[in-house]
């Protein structure tokens, strides 16, 4: 494996470790910080009433997580498409194979 790929792999591994460590060593509910912020407002200002509510609210956690998955899929797909195009362009232009791990991030 080239040095380029090894460094990329290590960068990716670093992210995995950063995500895994809290899951393994920290006990918590892993609730969203946005929700915790909201709870903090409700605690310190119990009389505050939100004056506007979302136009559309996903009916359940399942639907909501599905929509988030779609969001990530669209973004990931677009990124992968970009790297595919960029790599092919380089190849056609005679720049040689553009990276052995060209679109791993997609």
């Amino acid at each position: 494996m080239s040095r380029f790929s090894v460094v990329n792999m290590l960068l990716f591994l670093g992210v995995i470790v950063l995500v895994a460590v809290p899951l393994i060593f920290v006990s918590g509910e892993f609730a969203g910080s946005d929700d915790q912020g909201q709870a903090q407002i409700e605690k310190s200002h119990p009389h505050y009433k939100p004056w506007f509510s979302s136009i559309y609210e996903p009916p359940s956690g399942e639907v909501s997580s599905g929509l988030f998955a779609i969001q990530a899929a669209i973004g990931g797909g677009a990124l992968g498409y970009y790297f595919g195009v960029a790599r092919t362009r380089r190849r056609i232009a005679g720049g040689g194979p553009a990276g052995d791990s060209g679109s791993r991030n997609g």
């Binding site: 950063l18 995500v19 460590v21 809290p22 899951l23 920290v26 006990s27 918590g28 509910e29 892993f30 609730a31 969203g32 910080s33 915790q36 988030f68 998955a69 969001q71 990530a72 669209i74 973004g75 990931g76 797909g77 677009a78 990124l79 970009y82």
Partner: peptide, 18 residues
């Protein structure tokens, strides 16, 4: 797209929240 993916990615943190 990068912002799209990353801002959809809820990750656990050392504080026990995401």
């Amino acid at each position: 797209a990068f912002t799209f993916v990353l801002s959809a990615l809820k990750l656990p943190s050392v504080t026990g929240s995401c």
